[in-house]
């Protein structure tokens, strides 16, 4: 059976660290970083990329459109 494998790219300098994507992710790929970006926000980062299925939920709810999603069949 074909499996979907996804990957996300987060523009961490534009991220405002609202955390909406963290709750939207069904596979707990995203977490807020302990580091801050240039604006002083704890930006979102992918901590468990292996679990990503490329469902686009995080990118759909991101108010600032900083998440780009890629998906391929493996």
């Amino acid at each position: 059976m074909a499996k979907l494998k996804g990957a996300i790219v987060i523009d961490k300098e534009l991220c405002k660290g609202c955390g909406v994507c963290v709750t939207a992710c069904p596979t707990e790929v995203i977490a807020l970083s302990s580091e801050v970006n240039g604006k002083g926000y704890n930006y979102a980062e992918a901590v468990n990329m292996d679990a990503c299925t490329g469902c686009t939920n995080c990118a759909v709810v991101c108010p600032d459109g900083v998440i780009t999603v890629y998906r391929m069949k493996v």
């Binding site: 990957a7 790219v9 990329m49 686009t56 990118a59 459109g65 998440i67 780009t68 890629y70």
Partner: peptide, 15 residues
């Protein structure tokens, strides 16, 4: 990740 992050696999980006 480099294998997945390619233009042909793009499914969502900022409009």
């Amino acid at each position: 990740i480099q294998d997945i992050v390619k233009t042909e696999n793009l499914v969502h980006k900022k409009s």
